[in-house]
């Protein structure tokens, strides 16, 4: 065999390995989804969605968990969106190149890399203890808001960056102020991208369990939360709790709850992908 034949053979071999690697992740994903569906799908019925938790696996439901999850999503949105979008707008539209602002940028990149459980410790000390919110929905939502803030800031900046300079010039030349230009031109033009970032942030928040456990969210909450100061649980914590039990019946419950959680996650991500594509195709400057 000549050298060049050898090289071609190696090249071919790597190509096969590349296909194999690309598919291994997807195959694992598929096995996993099928396994969860087989195990949990038949467990999902109206009762499972509307029952309170119980010590008996067959009677336990996820009502408190999904209601808690939706509360957390809404509260986190209310707190994190205005803050994150404002910060993104400031850094992209207003800030000049100076030391404070380059420090801000490094700082936000750093925050994005802080493990979620550390945010839990922050929330435990500041929100749960110092502010006296305990293991309430509000404390949980505040903690998750800080966690997703960097995601919102970064995607807001990306979206704003994509708005062409010429649009701003046109607005300024007509006598518009900075804020008028930002509000009337830049934000509407970057709306799709900002929305995508917001939904990705929510999809991150919906799957978090660790920081909420640390601030004191409980696994067993026998009532449906009705106000932001109520104690709560969320789907990921409920799944964690059921997975940690030795009885096989609870694992079935966990699988069923995972199906619901994945459904929410995939829907959120699907919306984000849809919006991104729609927005990219909409305006060509």
């Amino acid at each position: 065999m000549t050298n060049s034949e050898k090289n071609r053979l190696k090249d071919k071999a790597f190509q096969v390995f590349g296909v194999f690697c690309t598919f291994i992740g997807l195959v694992v994903l598929a096995i996993f989804l099928i396994d969860i569906l087989i195990e949990g799908f038949t467990r999902i019925d109206w009762e499972f969605l509307t029952n309170l938790p119980s010590r008996r696996a067959s009677r336990a439901g996820i009502l408190t968990a999904w209601v808690g999850t939706f509360w957390i999503l809404i509260l986190t949105s209310v707190i994190a969106f205005p803050l994150g979008i404002s910060a993104g707008v400031y850094l992209e539209e207003y800030s000049k190149k100076n030391r404070l602002n380059s420090f801000l940028e490094v700082n936000i990149a750093n925050l994005a890399g802080v493990p979620s459980i550390i945010y839990g410790l922050l929330g435990l000390e500041i929100f749960a203890r110092v502010m006296g919110l305990g293991g309430s929905l509000l404390a949980g939502a505040l903690t998750l808001s800080l966690l997703v803030l960097p995601i919102i800031i970064v995607t807001t900046r990306e979206a704003i960056k994509a708005v062409p300079r010429s649009i701003r010039d046109a607005s300024y030349a007509l006598g518009a102020s900075k804020w008028q230009t930002t509000w009337n031109q830049v934000l509407p033009a970057s709306f799709g991208g900002i929305l995508t970032g917001i939904i990705l942030a929510l999809s991150r928040a919906v799957g978090e369990a660790a920081p909420l456990i640390v601030i004191g969210a409980l696994a067993y909450v026998p009532f449906v939360p009705t106000s932001p100061t109520d104690e709560f649980t969320v789907l990921p914590i409920q799944i964690f709790n059921w997975t940690s039990r030795p009885q096989a019946d609870f694992l079935v419950n966990a699988a069923a709850a995972i199906i619901i959680l994945l459904l929410i996650t995939f829907i959120l991500n699907g919306i984000a992908v849809y919006l991104r594509n729609k927005w990219q195709n909409k305006v060509k400057w």
Binding site: P164, S166, I167, D169, A170, S171, A173, L174, G175, A176, S177, Q180, N184, Q185, P188, A189, V283, W285
Partner: peptide, 23 residues
């Protein structure tokens, strides 16, 4: 001011013309 490349806002023709008045 008028720029090198036409830079209408991604809005209607009418809204483009009256933008300066609206603000």
């Amino acid at each position: 001011m008028v720029f090198q490349k036409p830079n209408p806002f991604p809005k209607t023709i009418f809204e483009n013309v009256v933008y300066g008045l609206r603000i």
